[in-house]
C-alpha cells in the first residue's frame, strides 16, 4: 500500500490543525524525512508564533465596547430566539457534523485569545515554586502523596494520574479560591509537569484549553466544582494533549 504523497498544501493544513490523525502521521513522517520541508515548516511555525505575539498587546476593551457587547448578548439571548439554549445544541450538532465532514481537528492550543480564568496565574506561580523547591537543597520535597487524605481535608478531588507518572512533590497552596493542591510530577520521558487543582467554579471550559502564560504552557479545564490546570515548559499543544488524557480518563 502506497500512501498519498504529502503536498505543501497538506503541510500547511497540518500546521493549521485541519488534518485527521492518519494524515497528520503522514505529514509528520514526511517532515521527519525531508530536512528542507521541515525547515520551511519550522519557519512557518515561527511566523505564526511571531504574529500571535505581535497580536497580544491589546489594551483592555473600552467600556463602551463592553456595554455594546452586553446589549448584543441580551438581544441575541431573547426575542425570536427564546429557545436559544436548545438551538445552541442544534448548532453544536451541526458543528460536529461539519467537523466530521471536513475532518477538522481543532487544536485547542490555537484558541489563544480567550482570557484564562484567574486561577491559571496561581497554577503557573505554583509550578515555578515547585521548580524552585526542587532546585533548593534546604527545601525538602514531599513525594508521599495521599489523594484520599487530600480529599478529606480540602475537598479537592484529585484526578487519577497515569500509571507511569511519579509524584515528586505535593504542596497545598493558598489561592484566592481557597486551598489548592499542587503536584509536581515526572513523566516517563523525564518531563516535569505541575498539576494544579482547586475547588472553584471558575469559567474554565470543560474541554481543556491551552495558553502560553509567562513562559510556561498551561492547559486548564473544569470538571464540575473542580478547576484544574497542567503546567509545563512545552508547547501549548503538547500540554493540551496531556490534559486531554485526564479528561478522557474521567469519562
Amino acid at each position: 500500500m502506497h500512501p498519498e504523497p504529502v503536498t505543501e498544501a497538506e503541510i500547511q493544513a497540518y500546521l493549521d490543525g485541519e488534518l485527521d490523525l492518519g494524515r497528520r502521521l503522514e505529514v509528520e513522517s514526511h517532515l521527519a524525512a525531508d530536512a528542507e520541508a521541515a525547515h520551511i515548516f519550522m519557519e512557518d511555525l515561527r511566523l505564526r508564533t511571531s504574529l500571535r505575539l505581535l497580536a497580544t498587546d491589546l489594551a483592555d476593551a473600552p467600556p463602551e465596547m463592553l456595554s455594546a457587547a452586553a446589549r448584543l448578548s441580551a438581544r441575541l439571548g431573547d426575542g425570536p430566539a427564546r429557545s436559544f439554549r436548545k438551538l445552541w445544541g442544534g448548532r453544536m450538532m451541526q458543528g460536529l457534523a461539519a467537523a466530521a465532514l471536513l475532518m477538522i481537528v481543532v487544536l485547542p492550543g490555537r484558541d489563544v485569545q480567550a482570557r484564562p480564568p484567574a486561577y491559571v496565574g496561581d497554577a503557573v506561580a505554583a509550578y515555578r515554586t515547585g521548580l524552585l523547591r526542587e532546585a533548593m537543597a534546604s527545601q525538602i520535597e514531599t513525594p508521599r502523596f495521599d489523594a484520599g487524605e487530600v480529599q478529606r481535608s480540602t475537598r479537592i478531588r484529585v484526578p487519577r494520574l497515569p500509571a507511569q507518572w511519579v509524584v515528586t512533590d505535593a504542596q497545598i497552596f493558598p489561592s484566592k479560591e481557597g486551598p489548592a493542591l499542587q503536584l509536581m510530577v515526572r513523566t516517563p520521558n523525564a518531563k516535569k509537569l505541575s498539576l494544579f487543582a482547586v475547588r472553584a467554579q471558575s469559567d474554565a471550559p470543560v474541554a481543556p484549553t491551552a495558553v502560553r502564560h509567562e513562559g510556561a504552557s498551561v492547559a486548564y479545564w473544569r470538571e464540575g466544582e473542580m478547576s484544574y490546570a497542567i503546567t509545563g515548559p512545552e508547547a501549548p499543544e503538547a500540554i493540551d494533549t496531556v490534559a486531554e488524557t485526564f479528561v478522557d480518563d474521567a469519562v
Partner: peptide, 8 residues
C-alpha cells in the same frame, strides 16, 4: 479534540 462552540 475540541469542537468550536462546545463551551455553550
Amino acid at each position: 479534540m475540541r469542537i468550536w462552540g462546545m463551551s455553550g
